[in-house]
Amino acid sequence: MNFTVAQIAKMIDHSILRPEFTVEDVRSGCAVAAKYDVASVCVRPCDVPTAVSLLRDTNVRVGTVIGFPHGDSATQIKVTETELAVDQGATEIDMVLNIGWLRSGDINAVENEILSVVKAAGEAHVKVILETAYLTDEQKLAACWAAERAGAAFVKTSTGFAPTGATVDDLALMRSAVSAAVQVKASGGIRTLDTMLAMAAVGVTRFGTSATAEILEDLARRQVNVPGGRA
Rank of each mutant, 00 (worst) to 15 (best):
T205D: 07
G208P: 06
S176F: 03
A172R: 15
M196R: 00
A39P: 01
T164P: 06
V48C: 09
F154P: 01
D218C: 12
A211N: 09
G189H: 10
D137M: 03
N112W: 00
T192S: 11
G188C: 03
A162P: 04
L219F: 07
A152P: 12
S73P: 00
Q223A: 05
Q183P: 00
P45M: 00
P163N: 00
N2F: 15
V62F: 08
G189C: 07
A152T: 12
V224K: 08
G67R: 03
N98W: 02
M199Q: 07
T58F: 14
I8S: 06
A201Y: 09
F154E: 03
Q7R: 14
I107A: 02
N108V: 14
V26F: 03
C46A: 13
L55Q: 13
L173F: 07
T82D: 05
I107P: 06
D106I: 11
L55E: 09
I107R: 02
R175I: 03
A39Y: 07
A142P: 06
V224I: 13
I8Q: 02
N108I: 11
R149D: 05
I114L: 09
S73I: 02
N2A: 13
D137V: 01
F207Y: 05
Q223W: 01
W145E: 15
E148V: 09
S28M: 12
